[in-house]
Measured scan of single mutants.
Amino acid sequence: IMNCCEQCGEYLPSKGAGNNVLVIDGQQKRFCCQSCVSEYKQVG
């Protein structure tokens, strides 16, 4: 599985992206930055 930001689609290095993760309905959603997390929450 490719690690990509759920919001902008930016490729995420394998281990460096652990900071910005949401778990929604048991699914891990990865993000490249906190602003993408916030945007995803607003839209979702």
Rank of each mutant, 00 (worst) to 15 (best):
C33Q: 10
S35R: 13
G16S: 11
N3P: 03
E6C: 04
I24E: 13
C5T: 01
C8E: 04
M2V: 04
G9I: 02
C4P: 08
G16T: 15
G44D: 04
K41D: 15
Q34D: 12
C5I: 00
C36S: 02
M2G: 07
E39S: 13
N19G: 12
C5W: 00
C33P: 03
V43P: 14
R30T: 14
E39P: 04
Q7C: 11
P13M: 01
E6R: 03
Q42T: 12
P13G: 04
G18W: 06
V37E: 14
Y11N: 15
N3V: 03
G26Q: 10
G18L: 02
Q42W: 03
E10L: 00
E6D: 13
L12M: 02
V23K: 11
S14E: 14
C4F: 02
S38L: 11
N20E: 14
V21T: 13
E10M: 01
I24Q: 07
V23Y: 09
S14D: 15
Q34V: 13
C32Q: 01
D25W: 01
P13S: 06
Q7E: 05
E10D: 06
Y40N: 04
K41S: 13
I1Y: 02
R30P: 14
C36F: 01
K15W: 08
K15H: 14
N19P: 03
C4W: 05
I24T: 15
S14K: 04
R30C: 15
A17H: 03
K29T: 04
S38G: 11
L22E: 12
Q34H: 12
C32P: 02
S14Y: 00
C33M: 06
V23M: 15
D25E: 09
S38C: 09
I24S: 09
A17G: 09
K29S: 04
I1E: 12
I1G: 07
C4A: 07
G9K: 01
G44E: 07
Q34S: 12
S35H: 09
I1R: 05
K29E: 05
Y11D: 15
L12C: 03
L22P: 10
C5S: 01
Y40P: 15
V37G: 06
E6M: 13
I1W: 00
E39A: 14
C33W: 01
Y40H: 00
Y11K: 15
G44S: 05
F31T: 05
L12H: 00
C36H: 03
F31Q: 08
L22K: 10
V37S: 07
D25H: 14
Q27E: 09
L12D: 07
V43E: 10
C32I: 00
C8F: 00
K15M: 15
R30M: 13
P13T: 09
K29G: 05
Q34K: 06
S38P: 04
A17K: 01
C32V: 03
G26Y: 15
C5L: 00
V23G: 09
Y40S: 14
V23E: 15
E6Y: 05
G9V: 01
V23I: 13
C33I: 00
M2R: 07
V21C: 04
L12T: 04
V37T: 13
Q42C: 11
I1S: 07
R30D: 14
S38T: 09
Q7V: 04
C4M: 08
C33G: 11
Q7A: 09
E10Q: 02
C36L: 02
S38H: 07
S38W: 06
C4Y: 02
Q7L: 06
G44P: 06
S35M: 10
L22G: 08
R30L: 15
E6W: 03
L22I: 08
V37F: 05
C33F: 01
Q42H: 10
V37H: 00
I24V: 10
Y11V: 14
C36I: 14
C32N: 01
F31A: 07
C36Q: 06
K41L: 08
K41R: 13
K15C: 12
Y40C: 15
Q42E: 09
N19C: 10
K29P: 01
Q28M: 08
L12F: 03
C5M: 00
E10S: 03
N3G: 08
Y40D: 11
E6L: 06
R30E: 15
P13R: 01
I24R: 10
C36W: 01
Q42K: 11
D25T: 10
C5G: 00
C5K: 03
E6N: 05
G9C: 07
S35D: 15
E6A: 06
D25S: 04
L22F: 07
S14M: 03
N20A: 11
V21Q: 07
E10N: 03
Y11M: 09
K41Y: 02
S38I: 09
G18S: 03
P13N: 01
L22A: 10
N19L: 11
Q28C: 02
G18R: 02
C36K: 08
L12P: 08
Y40F: 03
E10K: 10
E6F: 06
M2Q: 08
G9Y: 14
Y11T: 15
K15E: 15
R30W: 12
N19M: 10
V23L: 05
L22W: 06
V37Y: 12
E10F: 00
N3H: 07
C32T: 02
K41P: 12
Q7N: 02
L12W: 02
C33L: 03
Q34Y: 01
Q7W: 06
A17E: 14
Q7P: 01
N20W: 06
N20V: 12
I24M: 08
K41M: 10
D25P: 02
L12E: 12
V37I: 00
Q28T: 11
V21F: 00
Q27K: 00
F31C: 04
C32G: 04
L22M: 01
K41Q: 12
Y11C: 13
G9D: 01
Y40L: 07
S38E: 13
G44A: 14
Y40G: 13
V23A: 08
G26N: 14
S35F: 06
P13V: 01
K29M: 12
Q7K: 08
V23C: 07
N20K: 06
P13A: 00
Q34C: 09
A17C: 09
R30N: 14
L22S: 07
S14Q: 08
G18C: 05
Q27R: 06
K41G: 13
Q42S: 11
S35E: 12
N20H: 14
Q27P: 06
K15P: 15
M2E: 14
M2P: 03
Q28D: 15
R30A: 14
K29W: 02
N3T: 05
G18P: 12
Q34F: 11
R30H: 02
C4L: 09
E10V: 00
V37A: 10
N3K: 05
N3D: 11
S35I: 13
P13Q: 10
C36N: 04
N19Y: 02
D25I: 11
V43L: 06
S35P: 10
D25Q: 03
I24G: 10
G44T: 08
C8S: 03
Q7S: 11
C32S: 03
S38D: 10
S35T: 09
Y11S: 15
G44R: 11
E39K: 15
N3S: 08
S14G: 09
F31P: 06
C36E: 03
S35Q: 10
C5D: 01
K29L: 10
C5Q: 00
K41E: 05
F31G: 06
C8V: 00
G26D: 15
A17W: 02
C36D: 05
V23W: 10
V21D: 12
M2A: 07
N3C: 06
G9P: 01
C36R: 03
K41T: 15
C32W: 01
L22C: 05
C32A: 03
F31K: 00
N3Q: 05
L12N: 02
I1F: 04
Q28R: 02
G16R: 01
R30Q: 15
M2I: 08
E39L: 05
D25R: 06
V23S: 13
S14V: 11
C32D: 03
Q27W: 06
V21G: 08
S38A: 13
F31E: 09
N20Y: 10
C8D: 00
L12Q: 04
Q34I: 02
V23T: 14
S35A: 10
C33T: 11
Q7M: 07
Q34G: 12
Y11G: 15
N20I: 06
D25L: 02
G18M: 06
K41A: 09
G9W: 02
G16W: 04
V37L: 11
Q34R: 05
E10W: 02
V23H: 10
C32R: 04
E39Q: 08
L12K: 04
K29R: 10
G26I: 04
K41V: 06
V43T: 11
C4Q: 14
Q27C: 10
S14W: 02
S35G: 13
D25V: 01
